[in-house]
């Protein structure tokens, strides 16, 4: 059994359906998709230590099962530059009302990308696991500029998925910006395809946003949902 399968079996045996951002990204890292360096803690000085280790600026997010829409709840603190800001943010985040266990996910703040993209996966009742690609961020559901494929996909399909969205010019040197690393997106799509084919227990995934650069990409937030 592959490492990812073992991790998923383990979550299922705990009765877990929705993986947290931390857990989701941890799994993605295991299959070779770059993620922001992250640490889960409920200790303020530990948060500071980790920030010093990975370097500033950092991002802190409140992890609590009942806080789903993190940005709406003010549970995300961006661009923290030093120890003082971390400590202040830590207190603020921990004071957000929640009935669940609270932890802080502290992570490296990713550099400004060319644009944000989304890679997703869903299980269609007719066609089984399917993959999605699109321009990410908060407008993704409004504009629905996304492409789908039935899994598994090959390199050709991944390449087509990227090229067929209307927003493709954003990845292709739009308004003097550098061109995005298409090969890195293809690679990530293929890795997600492999993951979901190997693990039919996965029901849905959002890798949103992924920051895309001229060279490489980094998954900034993710959500993995397992089958009932």
């Amino acid at each position: 059994m592959s490492e990812s399968s073992e991790i998923i079996k383990n979550y299922l045996s705990q009765g877990k359906k929705v993986l947290t951002e931390f857990e989701s990204k941890e799994l993605l890292e295991k299959i070779g998709i770059p993620i922001t360096k992250q640490k889960l803690t409920s200790d303020k000085s530990d948060a500071v230590r980790f920030a010093n280790e990975i370097g500033y600026p950092v991002v802190m997010k409140l992890m609590a099962d009942d806080v789903v829409h993190k940005s709406d709840a003010g549970a995300v603190k961006l661009n923290l530059q030093n120890k003082d800001e971390i400590e202040k943010s830590y207190d603020e985040l921990m004071s957000i009302p929640s009935k669940s266990e609270k932890k802080i996910n502290i992570q490296k703040m990713a550099d400004e990308p060319i644009t944000e993209i989304i890679i997703g996966m869903t299980t269609d009742p007719q066609f089984g696991p399917a993959l999605m690609f699109g321009i990410g961020g908060i407008l993704v559901e409004l504009l629905e500029d996304v492409s789908f494929r039935i899994a598994p996909i090959e390199k050709f399909d991944a390449n087509e998925m990227i090229h067929e969205i209307k927003g493709f010019p954003l990845l292709d040197g739009f308004r003097g910006k550098p061109k995005a690393d298409i090969d890195a997106i293809i690679d990530a799509l293929l890795k997600v395809s492999n993951l979901v084919i190997q693990n039919p227990e996965i029901y849905e995934m959002d890798l949103n946003p992924i920051f895309i650069y001229h060279s490489g990409l980094i998954c900034v937030d993710a959500r993995i949902i397992l089958k009932d």
Partner: peptide
């Protein structure tokens, strides 16, 4: 449509998936 808790799931309508399958 099935209940979806992800962005991806909410955008994957039956029609879109069928179109995807046929074209793929």
């Amino acid at each position: 449509m099935k209940a979806a808790s992800s962005h991806t799931g909410s955008m994957a309508t039956d029609y879109k998936m069928l179109k995807t399958a046929i074209e793929q």
